[in-house]
């Protein structure tokens, strides 16, 4: 049985026609199933896991990167295959996974081309697929318990990435879907009269521990979270069985 999780923004009128077309295509392909709609007021987590325990074989997220990230944190059994039907803005992960937007994604789902995808894990309880960003003010980053980096500059932006789709750095191979996290430290030096120059640092690490004197605002897919230090970020042993297209850009 297929289980579809819809984001709450899909209730907007402009998505209704596309959703109808998607549902009709899914029925044609014989992969239609139960639909659950996310809501700001309702926590769907408990119902969702009960339904999954009853015999769901595939979970499909309909929405964008944020929907996907919320869903993987709601689902307890991450061994199940997970698919994505991208719809609306902020669908960067779909592009990397080779999944076209809207109706065309149904054919990818039906072909069931599976790919193991690594997951980042924050403080042993919150998964992330892509990358997180934070300001580098008075923090110390410890990598693999081997070396540490002190950052005191407010202009420093720290990116910790599992799958990266940000600006292409060109200077370095930022890996995606490996057993390593990429730690990127960027800052722009310069002023009104000086030409701006970007300082760039890049490290690879399996385990990153961040300590600081106060809580750190972390930006994760357009979602701001305030996380108390120390923050432990690592690659999870759990990997997602993701249904991807043939044109995927990650291995």
């Amino acid at each position: 049985m297929y289980y579809y999780i819809y984001d709450n923004y899909l209730a907007e009128k402009k998505y209704q026609k596309t959703l109808l077309r998607i549902e009709s295509r899914l029925t044609d392909l014989g992969i239609n199933g139960k639909i659950v709609k996310m809501s700001v007021l309702k926590n769907i987590g408990d119902n969702l896991n009960e339904d999954i325990a009853k015999g769901v074989k595939t979970i499909v997220v309909v929405g964008n990167d944020r929907t996907l990230n919320q869903s993987i944190n709601l689902i307890h059994n991450l061994n199940l295959p997970i698919g994505l039907i991208p719809l609306g803005p902020n669908n960067n992960l779909a592009g990397l996974m080779g999944i076209p937007e809207g109706e065309a994604a149904c054919d990818i789902l039906s072909s069931r081309n599976m790919q193991k995808v690594s997951l980042g894990l924050i403080n042993q309880n919150y998964y992330f697929l892509s990358y997180l960003e934070m300001p580098g003010e008075n923090i110390c980053i410890n990598c693999d318990n081997n070396y540490f980096i002190n950052i005191n500059n407010r202009k420093d932006v720290i990116t910790i990435s599992n799958i990266y789709y940000g600006e292409d750095e060109g200077k370095v191979a930022i890996s995606s879907n490996t057993d390593y996290l990429d730690l990127i430290i960027k800052n722009k030096v310069g002023g009104i009269f000086k030409a701006k120059k970007e300082n760039f640092s890049h490290f690879k690490s399996k385990k990153i521990a961040i300590t600081g004197d106060k809580s750190i605002p972390v930006l994760l897919i357009d979602e701001k979270k305030i996380i108390k230090t120390p923050i432990q970020i690592e690659i999870s042993k759990q990997k997602l069985n993701f249904i991807t297209g043939k044109k995927r850009k990650i291995n």
Partner: peptide, 14 residues
């Protein structure tokens, strides 16, 4: 290139 240690960064340890 795998690792770049930029001018603003100080690394301590192994």
């Amino acid at each position: 290139t795998d690792t770049i240690i930029g001018p603003s960064v100080k690394v301590e340890g192994d």
